[in-house]
């Protein structure tokens, strides 16, 4: 069976087949949830915010002209909604000011106890969750959604060079923890 493209589904919704929006929801819910969970650091908030994002996207569908990919357009809604949520909750005031120049220290945030060694993928996942929201958003989009740096730049409205800086900085922070804890051999 032919898989409908996002544009075909959106055209159908615009013609009045509102139920087709469920295909879009099914297609993007897990990826967008992963992004939101890493940004908001809270599962329940992430799911509630994701509902808002889909409702916003539905209500704004007429404004989507298909000039960019739907995923790029939708992730921009998700990203901006997450930033608004973080800002309104004033949960992490200092993170509102986060930018490409933000310095973070994963090493001080994370104490890897040898006696409590877990599965490596879980360990990496926990480290990613410790990253500042913009950095973890970029990691999520790059690795989970397999978006290119150019696409991420468009979706998040951040310059390409800054996307790369944040991607490299995140990887390097993870790499340094691996080296510092002598986990290179174990990982290799």
């Amino acid at each position: 069976m032919k898989k409908l493209s996002d544009q075909e589904i959106i055209d159908s919704i615009k013609l009045g087949n509102q139920a087709d929006f469920s295909i879009i929801v099914d297609r993007y819910k897990d990826k967008a949830f992963s992004l939101l969970k890493r940004m908001l650091k809270n599962e329940q908030d992430a799911e509630e915010t994701l509902q808002d994002c889909f409702i916003k996207a539905y209500n704004s569908l007429n404004g989507f002209k298909g000039e960019a990919k739907f995923s790029t357009w939708f992730y921009r809604i998700v990203y901006n909604t997450a930033l608004t949520k973080l800002s309104s909750q004033k949960r992490k005031t200092e993170n509102e000011m986060s930018s490409v120049h933000e310095h973070f220290d994963l090493k001080s945030d994370y104490d890897y106890n040898v006696s409590e060694r877990k599965d490596m993928s879980e360990f990496i996942n926990e480290l990613v969750n410790k990253l500042p929201e913009k950095h973890s958003a970029i990691i999520s989009l790059f690795y989970l959604d397999e978006m290119s740096c150019e696409e991420i730049s468009k979706a998040l409205d951040i310059s390409l060079s800054n996307v790369k800086v944040m991607l490299y900085r995140s990887r390097n922070a993870l790499k340094d923890i691996i080296i510092e804890n002598n986990l290179v051999e174990e990982l290799i």
């Binding site: 992963s34 993928s121 990496i124 996942n125 990613v128 690795y143 993870l174 691996i178 990982l187 290799i188």
Partner: peptide, 12 residues
């Protein structure tokens, strides 16, 4: 290795 592990990350 970090790159590989990140590539293997699962969706929530």
């Amino acid at each position: 290795r970090i790159h590989k592990e990140l590539s293997l990350m699962q969706e929530d």
